[in-house]
Design a protein around this nucleic acid. Structure first.
Length: 440
RNA sequence: CGGGGCAUAGCGCAGCCUGGUAGCGCACCUGUUUUGGGAACAGGGGGUCGCAGGUUCAAAUCCUGCUGCCCCGACCA
């Protein structure tokens, strides 16, 4: 992509409304634009990151055996009256009326609809286990949206729903998602900590929030330092097997958000030097809720004994539109964003120090072409801005690697490869640069 | 939903107290000189001062009402 043909409205100054660093950087890097309180447009750079995140989420969901569907954002109120949540949900549910005066709503979540879908397609226990998920915009008319896309009124969520014959099978389904979540966040360069969460009226221990530690997090969290260094299950994990041994190391150590925190238990369980008390961002939430929706909505399967039983369900959420700022909170410096390679909007930035100079133009074009031929996403700054401005902008938008091409280097047949994170710069031939950047 | 604040060019702001018809920096356009960490000079374009009323010869400025947005708290992917 040529910068001269792209739409990248970056800002030197921070818009006044932005308080936290991720919101500021997303606005300055031209990733989003606010349309109303808690409602944002995603501009090209932001859209690329969001798509990369969704693809990682999708790959890990698929790997775990979940199947993708797509449900609408608009739902009939009727469905929610069946479950009893139409009245229970309150002001956060954005309700509208269609031209026939039928009450509708913008979906804040999809338990009801997925249960209806399940009901219409499944009769037998032989069709279980089943896990259906989608990635769709959700609407919650938040009392106080804030922090950019971290807490917005319209947000993208991956929500998966598992269906099983009994509680044991439901637990196995829960563990599959647990492992998928560990892998998903790790692939984005994040250290996530699963923390016991409130299970509400269902009880049990099958609810976890996945928390990223960050100073600007909304909740206070406590955990054993050992949790931060646990190895992540590999991509060869057999999701058809029993995953309890993989999950156990993550559920045994102490880890709790403030609402579940018990200081005495914390001190008893964790030696002082390993006690971490920090702030965190919730990027995922999984829970098992049994027959809470299947029973009132009549979602049953016929068991091996010929009797109908309501299915055991769980639901599993990840917020991609929240992960974007979460990753920035976890990975930035004074100059801007530092994208982990897996979610970077472009892998490599090329800076032409002397646009219009034949040798520089030719070298840049060749690099751009060669890298793109290898499947590398390249943003080539071919504008005639001064070098300093180009460096600053490239650092702001956080591309992991940069190639600096200028007359000084080219005199010796060299270009400079810069690592955004370390700031390290290395002179090498263009071919060596291509080799280095396509190696992994 | 309670408490506080803000609204003037795309962005950041000054002007308001003490009324006289709008200004600065960045960005943008033209030209020249430049070019290795947010260039310099010269010229230029862009604003129903959030909206609606009112006071006044005259309102960005004073008064009233409304709307939008931000922050702090209680609630949440």
């Amino acid at each position: 992509m040529r910068l001269s043909r792209y739409f990248l409205p970056t800002l030197k100054e921070t818009p006044r409304e932005a308080e936290i660093v991720s919101h500021r950087l997303m606005l300055r890097a031209g990733m989003i634009r606010q349309e109303a309180a808690g409602i944002y447009s995603w501009l090209p750079l932001g859209k690329r990151v969001l798509d990369k995140i969704c693809n990682i989420v999708r790959e890990e969901q698929n790997r775990s055996g979940a199947i993708e569907v797509l449900m609408p954002t608009l739902q009939p109120a009727e469905l929610w009256k069946e479950s009893g949540r139409y009245d229970a949900y309150g002001q956060e549910m954005l309700r509208i009326t269609d031209r026939h005066d039928r009450p509708m709503l913008y979906g804040p979540t999809n338990e009801e609809m997925i249960t209806a879908i399940f009901k219409s397609g499944v009769r037998s226990y032989k069709d279980l286990p089943l896990n259906l998920y989608h990635i769709q915009w959700k609407v919650r008319d938040e009392v106080r949206p804030r922090f950019g896309t971290m807490r917005s009124r319209e947000f993208l969520m991956k929500d998966a729903y598992s269906f099983d014959l009994d509680a044991d099978a439901a637990r196995r389904a829960y563990y599959r998602m647990f492992v998928a979540y560990l892998r998903t966040f790790a692939r984005m360069g994040l250290t996530s900590v699963p923390m016991k969460a409130d299970t509400g009226p269902i009880g049990g221990d099958l609810s976890h929030e996945f928390i990223i530690l960050a100073d600007t997090g909304e909740s206070e969290v406590f955990c054993d330092k050992a949790m931060l260094d646990l190895p992540i299950p590999s991509e060869d994990t057999d999701f058809t097997g029993d995953l309890s041994d993989l999950v156990a190391p993550f559920t045994k150590p102490y880890a709790a958000t403030d609402e579940m925190h018990d200081q005495a238990a914390f001190e008893a369980a964790v030696p002082e030097e390993r006690r971490v008390s920090a702030r965190g961002i919730e990027v995922g939430h999984i829970f098992y809720f049994g027959t809470k929706y299947s029973a009132p909505m009549g979602a049953v399967v016929t068991g091996p004994d010929g009797k109908d039983v309501p299915v055991e369900m769980g639901s599993y959420g990840i917020g991609p539109s929240r992960l974007v700022p979460a990753i920035i909170e976890a990975s930035h410096d004074d100059d801007g964003i530092i994208w982990p390679a897996s979610v970077a909007p472009f892998n490599v930035g090329i800076i032409n120090m002397r646009a219009g100079d034949d040798a520089c133009d030719a070298a840049c074009t060749e690099l751009e072409w060669q890298l793109q031929a290898q499947g590398i996403d390249v943003l080539y700054d071919d504008t005639d801005a001064r070098g300093g401005a180009k460096f600053a902008q490239m650092d702001l938008i956080g591309l992991p690697k940069q190639i600096i091409v200028g007359p000084k280097g080219l005199k010796n047949g060299e270009v400079e490869v810069k690592d955004r994170k370390t700031g390290e710069r290395t002179l090498m031939s263009p071919q060596a640069a291509i080799n280095a950047l396509t190696a992994s």
